Simulated assay, not measured.
Amino acid sequence: MIKTRNYRIAVIPGDGIGIEVVDAGLHVLDYLANESNGDFTFETDFFPWGCEYYLENGKMMDEDGVEKLSDYDAIYFGAVGFPGVPDHVSLWGLRLAICQGLDQWANIRPVEFLPGVPRRLNHPDVDNLNWILVRENSEGEYSGVGGRNFSGREGSNEVAVQSALFTEKGCERIIRFAFDLARTRKRKKVTSVTKSNAQQYGMVLWDEVFARVSKEYPDVETDQWLVDAMAAQFVLHPEELEVVVASNLFADILSDLGSALAGSLGIAASANLNPVKRTPSMFESVHGSAPDIAGKGIANPIGTIGSAALMLDHLGLSEEASRINQAIEETTRQGILTRDLGGTHNTAEITDAIIKNLSKRKLEV
């Protein structure tokens, strides 16, 4: 008799449409668990952390929140941010607190051009474009090093210092992660992105580490770009991209550009990984909380459902992850699209279509 695999998932819906899209993703996970005939189950615990929690308690999460999350197999996250709470408070108080507290140092953000989605990019082979951003997720420009001072000076004389922190260890582990990832793909190529001509300390260190590590991967093609030129490369020659590795800030910005080119931030999935699995990893869509459409039931759940696929793959359920991605592709191919993609379908209809295509895929297998 095969023992049931039980996965404990911490669920943080967060704010705005995060609540709606996480609910959609959980419906997909429940469907897969129910049809597995007891092969695996998901045990979910919900945490009400976010901006509403902050307004009631003066903090974005429990004081021992990171410790509580450390007992789970994975974290499923919605979105953070809502009017009334400054963005830097909501981000540092929840998402970044979790990523840094659990050392989720590798963030991956695939850029995929789904069938049936209106094209935002004029490219002769847009249907075959597919690349992945690897984002250093623990230091760099989001280290939180700095401060504000001299607020008591007369006039507008306050000083703010924001420092980017680059360590050789931090650079090496994310660059090595990118090379290892490239070896799993059809085209083995890593592109490094910096701004080392202007940032002559931290990013020159990054360049030097990239050059050193690349010598250990002679089978992997490499190139290097400055971030401004890379932004143009995303638009002009995306066929040259495969695995793109960059610092915390640069990969954050470039991933939004890639998602927009692919159709919408609503379809972009991401994973915040502790690759050695010493602590749980966190899975979330790239988009924000979108307060303007929250509660209307029209949010695009594809990014969050795609993030669930990344979570399943990380947990060892690679076949189920692949089935989710194929069901998403079949759904968009059928023209079942939300408003951000030029369609008319709502969140529930997209979710139901994905589950229907999951069922159809199961019957075919």
Rank of each mutant, 00 (worst) to 15 (best):
residue 341 L to F: 02
residue 346 N to R: 08
residue 15 D to C: 04
residue 46 F to T: 15
residue 334 Q to R: 13
residue 47 F to S: 05
residue 117 V to E: 03
residue 176 R to A: 09
residue 135 R to S: 05
residue 119 R to E: 06
residue 340 D to V: 04
residue 272 N to P: 06
residue 17 I to V: 13
residue 334 Q to I: 01
residue 158 E to W: 10
residue 115 P to T: 00
residue 266 G to W: 00
residue 199 Q to K: 14
residue 109 R to N: 04
residue 347 T to D: 01
residue 293 I to S: 14
residue 292 D to S: 02
residue 10 A to V: 11
residue 93 G to R: 14
residue 91 L to T: 14
residue 99 C to Q: 13
residue 169 K to L: 13
residue 284 E to L: 13
residue 332 T to V: 09
residue 230 M to D: 11
residue 239 E to T: 06
residue 181 L to S: 11
residue 162 Q to N: 15
residue 113 F to H: 01
residue 250 F to N: 12
residue 1 M to D: 11
residue 189 K to G: 12
residue 29 L to R: 00
residue 289 S to N: 02
residue 63 E to S: 14
residue 298 I to A: 01
residue 117 V to Y: 07
residue 10 A to G: 14
residue 267 I to H: 02
residue 312 L to V: 05
residue 92 W to T: 05
residue 255 S to R: 02
residue 162 Q to F: 08
residue 283 F to P: 02
residue 285 S to N: 04
residue 228 D to E: 13
residue 317 L to M: 06
residue 19 I to N: 04
residue 179 F to N: 12
residue 322 S to Q: 14
residue 267 I to C: 00
residue 249 L to T: 05
residue 102 L to H: 09
residue 232 A to E: 02
residue 343 G to W: 07
residue 93 G to Y: 12
residue 54 Y to V: 12
residue 49 W to S: 03
residue 188 K to C: 08
residue 36 S to F: 09
residue 307 S to I: 08
residue 59 K to L: 13
residue 260 A to F: 02
residue 260 A to W: 03
residue 216 E to V: 02
residue 289 S to L: 03
residue 94 L to E: 08
residue 11 V to N: 02
residue 43 E to P: 07
residue 291 P to Q: 10
residue 218 P to W: 04
residue 353 A to F: 01
residue 100 Q to Y: 11
residue 159 V to L: 15
residue 110 P to V: 12
residue 317 L to D: 06
residue 164 A to K: 15
residue 47 F to P: 06
residue 137 N to A: 11
residue 208 E to L: 14
residue 18 G to Y: 05
residue 232 A to H: 08
residue 171 C to K: 07
residue 256 D to M: 11
residue 282 M to H: 10
residue 188 K to N: 04
residue 287 H to D: 12
residue 23 D to V: 06
residue 297 G to H: 00
